[in-house]
């Protein structure tokens, strides 16, 4: 047993990376997230085969192939249901989902609500850059209403941004944190905490898109470490999140204690013959 533990500790962050070169632009915040994620896996001392990273479509959703763990890169917006099915079928696996603001909150918005509600023990890492990068720069649900940088909405969207952490809290997420891609050490630490916390853990990462939102390079100067520690009181967390400007980072904001949804695959004495007997006249 001790030998096994020692064996586990041998793995370093780089051992969780694959040899595939990311397609991201130079300076993209997602590089830093990949570093933090692999660092977190090393810290958790999980064997690569014990972990699965699931994603949908978008820049951030490319992460699975850049790791050396089991990965699943599916269709746009549906990473959470894939991860839900995987975790419920194979509860012993550690399941993480990597997503972005478009994949997670727009096309996948309904699954986000219900994943929070269902509270399956998975960790949801959302790289939020307030833009669709892969399709070359359109407004996402978290984009400010007056952003005029897209040909699709040249006058801005005129629509209030989606508040992922508030919605996540209201929907039942069991762990909520916001971190900045500019601080990979802190990011890794929070991801470790998120994985260890039972139930559905939501980690919003401010991950700048230097290509389509170059002004986001200033985020590293704007963000500040949240001044208060996390609360386990949902009402208090809600008040804080509602008055928050989105730049308080680096800390867990809420930790709940709802038991995760975990239907048992019970080994029973039941047999198919018994089921068939119910049809016999």
């Amino acid at each position: 047993m001790e030998a096994a533990v020692a064996e586990k500790r041998k793995l370093a962050a780089k051992d969780y990376k694959s040899d595939i070169k990311p397609i991201w632009c130079p300076g993209c915040g997602d590089y830093s997230v990949l570093n933090a994620l692999t660092r977190a896996l090393a810290e958790l001392a999980l064997r690569p085969e014990e972990v699965a990273v699931v994603s949908g479509i978008g820049c951030s959703s490319r992460i699975p192939a850049y790791t050396s763990v089991y990965g699943f890169h599916g269709v746009h917006g549906r990473a959470l249901p894939v991860a839900t099915g995987l975790k419920l079928a194979r509860p012993e696996l550690t399941v993480l989902v990597t997503s972005g603001d478009g994949d997670g909150f727009s096309i996948g918005g309904n699954h986000f609500l219900h994943a929070c509600r269902r509270n399956v023990d998975i960790t949801y890492i959302v790289m939020d850059n307030q833009v669709y990068g892969m399709t070359k720069g359109q407004a996402s649900p978290t984009t400010a209403p007056d952003w005029e940088g897209s040909k699709l909405t040249p006058e801005g969207t005129g629509i209030n941004p989606f508040q992922p952490l508030v919605v996540g809290l209201a929907s039942g997420a069991n762990f909520i944190a916001r971190v900045s891609a500019s601080d990979p050490i802190n990011m890794a630490k929070i991801i470790v905490e998120a994985v260890r916390h039972p139930g559905f853990s939501l980690v919003q990462i401010l991950s700048p898109c230097v290509t389509f939102r170059p002004e986001q390079q200033e985020w590293r100067d704007i963000v500040r470490t949240a001044v208060v520690d996390y609360t386990d009181d949902a009402a208090r967390a809600a008040r804080r999140l509602m008055t928050d400007d989105g730049f308080n980072v680096g800390k867990v904001l809420y930790k709940g204690s709802r038991p995760p949804f975990k239907p048992e695959f019970e080994v029973t004495d039941g047999s198919i013959a018994e089921l068939e007997a119910s049809f016999v006249i």
Partner: peptide, 15 residues
């Protein structure tokens, strides 16, 4: 959309 993707996830997991 969720039911089809849940079963894809479960089957990817071997069930």
């Amino acid at each position: 959309l969720a039911s089809i993707n849940q079963i894809i996830g479960a089957s990817y997991g071997g069930v």
